[in-house]
Simulated scan of single mutants.
Amino acid sequence: MKILYPYQDAFERDLSKRDIAQATRDEYTTTLQDFFHYLENFNPTYQADHRVNQLQTPDVEQYLAMLTNSREIQNQTYNKVLSHLNVYFKFLFSHNWTPYLPTLDLKSKPKAATRPVNFRWVDDLTTWLADDRLHVYTRAAMLLTTKGYPVQVYLKPNFTAQLDTTAWPAAEQQFLTQFRAFLAPLQSRFQCADWFLKQRAAADPHLTLPGLHKYLRPDEAVTNFKLSPTVLYQGYLVNYLRRHPRLTDRDVIAALHLEPDSIDYYRRLAQRAD
């Protein structure tokens, strides 16, 4: 297994001992991978020698500020990311792997008023797939979201390479033909059959979440709605629950792979949706 962040094996063993759902553990991985990827590229403290025990509060603040200002995450997401980092650094501190608790003085943000979730984009998927103003990565992300896959799943290596698309409808097949033509030289260069690949030479050809955001954000000027993978996925879930109001919790879990404690939250969003 490729190590995605410092002390990953030990931290994941610790998480596995707790009563934490696999989906939540995957969220920890996504947060920490993104955090250290950002530090590697933009943080002088970490770039100097890649020593996690040198990280202090300003280093975490820098990352959180980027999430707030560049990715425009909502307070709920901010608090979740901060919680993940807090658990991680407390774990390192408890093992004497860092002398600092850089999240100790960082406060969560107040719960913001719930914004209406855009669920209608799902019904217009065929139109968006045919819109050449949108980058193919944007359209592929939208397509995979409507298949029920969150971003942490479809960006995983080997996931899209093994995806069976033969039963997908004609409009989606038409987009896939265009998409495969775009991907062919990249897949040949990197000898990788996955869908989300970097367009420049790299040891790891797979596009990261920050890399995907670089394609999504400019396309918001075309769609006039947020293209954050998390927001798109919320819209898909709300759309699905609105169209299937009579499904039992068991049916919803089976269809959407949601954690049981998330169902009520998304049902309420679906009920409040215009």
Results as ranks from 00 to 15, higher is better:
residue 34 D to T: 15
residue 63 Y to C: 01
residue 73 I to H: 01
residue 87 V to P: 00
residue 34 D to W: 04
residue 158 N to L: 10
residue 114 T to P: 11
residue 90 K to L: 14
residue 159 F to N: 11
residue 132 D to W: 00
residue 87 V to L: 06
residue 93 F to Y: 13
residue 99 P to L: 10
residue 33 Q to L: 04
residue 47 Q to T: 06
residue 163 L to A: 13
residue 121 W to E: 07
residue 58 P to Q: 12
residue 45 T to I: 11
residue 132 D to P: 00
residue 104 L to M: 13
residue 53 N to T: 05
residue 97 W to H: 13
residue 140 A to E: 03
residue 104 L to V: 10
residue 125 L to F: 08
residue 75 N to L: 00
residue 160 T to G: 07
residue 22 Q to K: 08
residue 48 A to G: 09
residue 124 D to S: 12
residue 123 D to M: 03
residue 114 T to C: 11
residue 35 F to T: 15
residue 164 D to N: 15
residue 71 R to H: 15
residue 31 T to C: 12
residue 59 D to W: 06
residue 79 N to M: 07
residue 119 F to A: 05
residue 135 H to W: 01
residue 34 D to P: 04
residue 46 Y to A: 04
residue 133 R to N: 01
residue 117 V to C: 11
residue 35 F to K: 09
residue 68 T to F: 01
residue 32 L to I: 03
residue 149 Y to D: 01
residue 59 D to P: 08
residue 97 W to D: 13
residue 42 F to V: 04
residue 32 L to R: 01
residue 76 Q to L: 02
residue 28 Y to F: 08
residue 105 D to G: 08
residue 98 T to M: 02
residue 96 N to E: 15
residue 153 V to D: 10
residue 157 P to R: 12
residue 85 L to C: 10
residue 152 Q to K: 12
residue 70 S to C: 03
residue 125 L to Y: 06
residue 64 L to Y: 02
residue 76 Q to D: 07
residue 133 R to W: 00
residue 121 W to V: 06
residue 62 Q to M: 13
residue 101 L to D: 14
residue 163 L to N: 15
residue 76 Q to C: 02
residue 59 D to Q: 11
residue 62 Q to C: 05
residue 19 D to H: 05
residue 139 R to T: 00
residue 125 L to G: 11
residue 52 V to F: 05
residue 24 T to D: 10
residue 95 H to L: 13
residue 132 D to E: 15
residue 140 A to T: 13
residue 151 V to W: 02
residue 110 P to C: 12
residue 113 A to R: 14
residue 131 D to I: 05
residue 110 P to T: 13
residue 145 T to Y: 10
residue 110 P to E: 14
residue 64 L to M: 13
residue 103 T to C: 15
residue 112 A to M: 10
residue 32 L to P: 03
residue 49 D to R: 05
residue 109 K to Q: 14
residue 27 E to F: 04
